[in-house]
């Protein structure tokens, strides 16, 4: 029996559970027994990307809400966060392009 095809887009790995907290989000990796914490900005970005947002779109929306930070800087932070999440083996797949 073949496994169901993976849906496209960024997603949490099968063994990872996300739990919202007052300050952001905690991610539990049941495979390794480790847990991770995202601050409020990180949680906001991850939720938006898991919901199908593009990195540039998420950065643009965030830049419109905050002061004194360029969209380019936030876009770089989004890409860096994506790299860290993948390196920690918390996410798989690629975010929507656009």
């Amino acid at each position: 029996m073949t496994p169901p095809p993976e849906r496209p887009g960024l997603r949490l790995r099968r063994d990872v559970t996300a739990c919202d907290t007052e300050t952001g989000m905690v991610l539990l990796d049941e495979r390794t027994g480790r847990y991770w914490q995202l601050n409020g900005t990180g949680a906001h970005i991850l939720r938006a990307l898991l919901d199908g947002g593009t990195p540039d779109g998420v950065a643009e929306a965030l830049a419109a809400r905050v002061e004194a930070v360029s969209r380019e800087q936030i876009a770089a932070d989004v890409r860096d966060l994506l790299d860290r999440l993948a390196a920690a083996r918390l996410t798989e797949g690629a975010p929507a392009a656009g």
């Binding site: 847990y35 965030l62 932070d77």
Partner: peptide, 14 residues
């Protein structure tokens, strides 16, 4: 006020 995103490992599961 913008705070950069932070991902931190905070531990593991007598």
């Amino acid at each position: 006020v913008y705070e950069p995103p932070v991902l931190a490992g905070i531990g593991s599961f007598p």
